[in-house]
Design a protein around this nucleic acid. Structure first.
Lengths: 167, 167
DNA sequence: ACAAACTTTCATTTTTTTTTGAAACTTTAA
DNA sequence: TTAAAGTTTCAAAAAAAAATGAAAGTTTGT
């Protein structure tokens, strides 16, 4: 396999993986492209390489920057904007975790708390509902906290986790 | 808030959360419904409660059973099939982790290994590609192994993890 | 102040994913 | 057997998500 082929395969795979985890395919592909590029890329080049429209490129780059995993850069003497991806994988995972926690887990927890707080009338159905949603709330809260704690290690958190767990 | 309203809110929220994580909304809703039900539910009742077609119900129940988080049950003297969800949350998380690892992470790892193995021609671009994909392979492999290890605790793994990490 | 270079926005179109529903299939009881 | 009760399948329809592209907006150099 040669470079171009490998790069393309990587970009496609990362895009597919993104889709499976609820991330827009193009967004994941742009991220993939930037991650394996040794220098900043212009929007023009991204459009060209992925065969996508200007609007698509613009919107997905904005989304990636909102996630905090892609940065805009300016090159001296160049009018256009260039983009780079966060390349430190620990940092990347931390940012993705934080963002998903904030956007998706926290709001879900709020709902779980609400619905588990209903006044049960004592029937088996209602008792089970309150019991199960309470357990779910506790579980998700605990998992969210663990994630928070883990990613607080910042540097090399995965390696540190390995040490903690394996011993 | 009363029971019916709370139950509906929970089902909707669980469905939305599913979507955000790449799981078909209806599949997540059926799972939500079964999780908070104190007794097995028939396909008929699921269709009715979620306002979905027979085909949709059938296919998503099959998918949930393939994931190993919903079980088919038979009631004595009844011809129809009933369904229940895995209600132990440790077990639920373990099963989801295992399945996603098997279906999505492992195949991606295989590709990462392949593309990181290209013979670099020594240019900065190719060197960076090999370097970055190798790091990514190592990272994902390590994360996948950690997940494996954690969920191996089986009983109360989340609680055990909390203890390990917090101290 | 202008216009060239570039980026963003968003109504419309396209693609992808999900859902439907009816026919085919399976199982069970008489 | 057979027919009733139930389930699965899958081509077609519907819905949802993503992409396009051109107009509007912004920035910069002269």
């Amino acid at each position: 396999m040669e470079f171009k082929e490998a790069k393309n395969k990587f970009v496609q795979t990362w895009g597919a993986l993104g889709s499976q985890w609820g991330i827009n395919k193009t967004m994941a592909q742009i991220h993939a492209l930037l991650m394996v590029s040794h220098e900043p890329i212009s929007m023009e080049d991204i459009m060209d390489e992925l065969q996508i429209s200007r609007g698509n490129a613009s919107m997905n780059l904005r989304a990636l920057m909102d996630w905090g995993i892609v940065y805009k850069e300016y090159k001296a003497g160049e009018r256009k904007e260039f983009f780079t991806a966060e390349k430190d994988l620990d940092e990347l995972a931390v940012k993705i975790s934080r963002e998903r926690s904030k956007r998706e887990i926290k709001p879900a927890l709020k709902v779980l708390k609400e619905v588990s707080a209903i006044e049960s009338d004592g029937t088996a159905a209602e008792k089970h509902f309150v019991d199960q949603t309470t357990k779910l709330y506790d579980f998700v809260l605990k998992a969210d906290n663990v994630l928070d704690k883990i990613t607080e290690y910042k540097d090399n958190w995965l390696a540190k986790l390995v040490v903690k767990i394996m011993r």
